[in-house]
């Protein structure tokens, strides 16, 4: 038990370069596997949370763009969504890394972009914006006509109509599908080091450490289920948090109506 605490002290923050420099080499213990894979989860959470937060705003813009009358705005939003939703993330990572390398050669500004913390974050951000944008667009289309008519009757227009009526209703309708998107996004963060970006100084995400152990112990049946366990926990946390926010978004509705609204998971899971 004491030993395990030591291990946690040594490796708990290894994924961000704090603690023991060398990874364990032999006599791998379960504690080491739990600690290091858990330490790698920090990166998965970092990628997931930041791209989800930033993606939320771009997604709103993209959804409005796709619904806009202006053809330039509409077409560019449609293409943005199509490209990022239509191709595997795996290939997006490949092209992004390649592009950043080429740009880096030309402009020193792009230096940090070939590192995962920025480059992969950017790709994940654009990717989730496209998926979320499509979800929001679908929700925007299904806002009950009556809501907008009522807003008009109250004399709301322009920005205040959007902020007070359209936007909250859109979020409310999109929330269940958006929850699914959030889950998927966290799952896709495992692709970052697996096939997209290089790992520096053995600082990687949970999957990086899981495959390190699988490779060193020649036994895939321990590290990968540990990784799976962490992700199931993470998924539960996401569902709980998103459920809380969703309940808040729906707090003005009568209880019964709330249940019917949430009963069906509509349209666009990713």
């Amino acid at each position: 038990m004491m030993e395990c605490l030591d291990t946690i002290a040594d490796y708990g923050l290894r994924s961000i370069g704090i603690g023991e420099r060398l990874l364990p080499r032999e006599n791998f213990t379960l504690c080491q596997q739990f600690t290091l894979i858990g330490s790698g989860m920090l990166w998965n959470i970092y990628f997931g949370v930041l791209s989800l937060l930033a993606g939320f705003f771009l997604a709103t813009a993209v959804a409005l763009g796709k619904a806009a009358r202006n053809p330039v705005l509409r077409k560019s939003s449609e293409w943005f969504i199509f490209i990022f939703r239509g191709s595997p993330l795996f290939i997006q990572f490949f092209f992004a890394y390649f592009l950043f390398l080429a740009l880096k050669g030309q402009y020193p500004f792009f230096d940090p972009f070939t590192a995962a913390w920025l480059g992969a974050l950017l790709v994940l951000f654009l990717n989730t914006s496209a998926y979320t944008g499509e979800i929001f667009y679908g929700a925007l289309q299904s806002i009950p006509k009556g809501d907008i008519e009522a807003a008009d009757a109250y004399g709301l227009s322009g920005w205040s109509r959007f902020r007070r009526v359209i936007w909250p209703t859109m979020l409310r309708l999109a929330w269940p599908a958006y929850t699914n998107e959030a889950i998927f996004l966290f799952h896709s963060t495992t692709l970052v080091y697996f096939s997209g970006f290089p790992a520096w100084q053995q600082k990687g995400d949970a999957l990086y450490y899981a495959s390190y152990f699988a490779d060193k112990t020649f036994n895939p049946f321990v590290p990968y289920p540990i990784l799976a366990g962490y992700f199931i926990l993470l998924t539960l946390v996401i569902i709980t948090l998103m459920g809380r926010i969703g309940a808040r978004l729906n707090r003005h509705l009568p209880q019964e109506a709330k249940r019917t609204r949430f009963r069906f998971r509509p349209q666009l899971i990713r």
Partner: peptide, 19 residues
């Protein structure tokens, strides 16, 4: 439904096939 959905597909693929 809950467990398999909760696990990233890559992680699942990496050990499930041999199992």
């Amino acid at each position: 439904i809950a467990i398999v959905r909760g696990v990233p597909d890559i992680a699942f693929f990496l050990f499930f096939v041999i199992a």
